[in-house]
Amino acid sequence: MSRSTLATKLTLIISLLLLLATWQVGAILLDAQVILPTVGKTVEAFVQLLKFKPLSVNILTTVSRSLKSFLIILISGTILGILAGYFKLIDAFLKPFLVICKATPVMAIILLAFIWFSSGTVPLFSAFLMGFPIMFVQMERGVDQISKELKEMSQLFAFSKKDRLFYVIIPSLLPSIITGSKASLSMVWKVVIAAEVLTVPKYGVGSRMQLAQVNLETAQVLAWTIIAILLTAIGDLVFSLLLKALERVVK
């Protein structure tokens, strides 16, 4: 391990320990488990959660909602973003929808969706509305940023349409697909859980958080929060591994 890598890792560990120490000191000073439980109590609640039988059902339901929503965003955002990048009329047509999506507060979308749909569909729908503009804008920008020189080169060397797509357009758009996917996926996790908190469907990490909060089980709320953070981190990790695998295939 190089010196700089070791220093970075040490700094990370120190930062994490400092954060935990601040939390622990704050909890001791407040001396109120309902407001801020100690680190120990939270870990205890977390271990209890792991023993909790429908834990996997709750997690899997949230993961399934998030992935479904992400998949819809990935496909629709990519296709419509590329089309809008090439055809200004499509861009103009979708602009009002995007402006509304971007400007409307998440909570307002969730509340409205709750009026229109069942509690299980609300997280999916809300996450789509919040994540779609991110993917769309990234793809539209990606189309704008395709090198004019490379486009001209492919034209001069008489690339076929298929070769232009696979050798110039798709590789040029890959960074936008990656950035858009990463940003929309992290947005999807947050919105899905927020929507579950507000609408309390039968299963879901957010529903459990809300129930724990109603029962003033703050340690349990924090334990569910840790699970939510872990889900996002695992999502990012799986995403990075997929990208690396994709890079190997492209090579």
Binding site: E152, M153, F159, S160, D163, Y167, P171, V250
Partner: peptide
């Protein structure tokens, strides 16, 4: 066909040297 040599190399940055040359032969 007419071939070009530009001021800049205009290579496909994602592909190897071999692919950059091989791709123009595909048609």
């Amino acid at each position: 066909p007419v071939s070009y040599l530009f001021q800049e190399p205009r290579l496909l940055p994602w592909f190897s040297v071999l692919t950059n040359v091989e791709v123009v032969l595909r048609p």
